Simulated assay, not measured.
Amino acid sequence: MEQRIGSSSQPLEGAGFDPAFIPGITAPVPADRKDTEAEDAVETEETASARDTEAPAAEAEEGAEAAQDKAEAEDEDAKAEAEDGQAEGEDAKAEGEDAKAEGEDEQDGDEGEPDGPVFEAADRRARIVADRKGVRLRLDEESCEFRWDEIGAVETEAPRFGKRFTVTVHTPDRRWYPIEIEATARARFKEWEEQLDAVLDAYFEV
């Protein structure tokens, strides 16, 4: 006969072994299981609280970043508008200067039909006009004007070589103001001298 060591039988539960046993009612939960469930409930509440706290903070941070991006975009737009306004102002200023220069040119030679002969010669830098008002010289941005009573003599010079025609205005106080006009052809020299002589004969009194 074999003898088994130990017992494989499970402890029996019931009224015969547990006086407090009532059929249909579960056995009491051990104390350590109650503690575990309580700890799990506390951890769940803490996790939910932390999540509720982190959500508004994240939303606030996103809102601050969006507001900063919007402010930077508005600053860039304002800067671009200011640069556009400055460019428009510079363009308007340049147009005003061009209109002023055109007005001066018209005033110099084109204000009405002049009475008597007129001499006028110009190149890309210099210009001379002689009419009944006197003699006007211009070189780049510099200009001067002489009435006939302010002129002591007018001298011309045509070089043997080259295409620069020189006109020099002398004043009674022994000052002189030369200006060189570059002709398109040397044949213009004779034409200019004839026109200037006609003006001097008509208006200049020695």
Rank of each mutant, 00 (worst) to 15 (best):
R175F: 09
A99K: 13
C144P: 02
E111C: 07
A92N: 15
A31I: 14
E76D: 04
I179D: 02
V118H: 06
W148V: 01
D40V: 06
A67Q: 04
P114D: 11
E2A: 12
A185D: 14
I128G: 00
D18L: 11
D84R: 15
A126Y: 00
S143E: 15
E145W: 02
D201L: 10
G112S: 00
E120G: 02
D32C: 10
E43N: 11
T184E: 10
E141N: 13
F189E: 00
F161A: 08
E111F: 12
G134L: 03
Q86R: 13
A15V: 11
G103R: 14
E88H: 13
P11Q: 11
S49L: 13
G14N: 08
T36M: 11
A27I: 09
A73C: 08
E72N: 13
F161I: 13
G24S: 12
G96M: 12
A50I: 11
R136C: 02
P117E: 01
R138N: 07
L139R: 06
A58H: 05
V206H: 06
G152H: 06
F146S: 10
G116T: 07
A38K: 12
F119M: 05
A15W: 00
A66F: 01
A41V: 08
E90Q: 15
T171I: 13
T166K: 10
P30T: 04
R4P: 02
R4F: 07
A202M: 07
K100T: 00
G103P: 04
L137T: 03
A130T: 02
G134C: 03
A158K: 11
E76P: 01
D105E: 15
E54T: 09
I179K: 03
R186H: 09
E141Y: 04
E120Q: 13
L196F: 14
R51A: 15
A92S: 13
P172S: 01
E97P: 05
